[in-house]
Amino acid sequence: MIYFTIILISIMLLCGIIAAISKDLLFAVIAAGMASFITAILFVFLQAPDVAMAEASIGAALVTALFVLALKKTKRSE
């Protein structure tokens, strides 16, 4: 179990780093959404189903959608 958690967290941090350094903003947004989604999974592990649900629906889905829509109105590359 703990190894699984460690793997998840490393993936999450990796997603964060990708989001930070990627020149393609769409890619960065997707990576950030991914990190958010993995956080939602971690919330389940931490016995917080309410928060997990909120994070999954808002952090992972809605925020990503907002970013994508905003990118559509501006430009994609940094």
């Binding site: 909120a54 629906s57 809605l62 959608a65």
Partner: peptide, 17 residues
Amino acid sequence: SPGGGFQGGAVIASAFL
């Protein structure tokens, strides 16, 4: 059960999305 107004509202918003 887990969930509530905030989560449900977000789900509704994603349905509209």
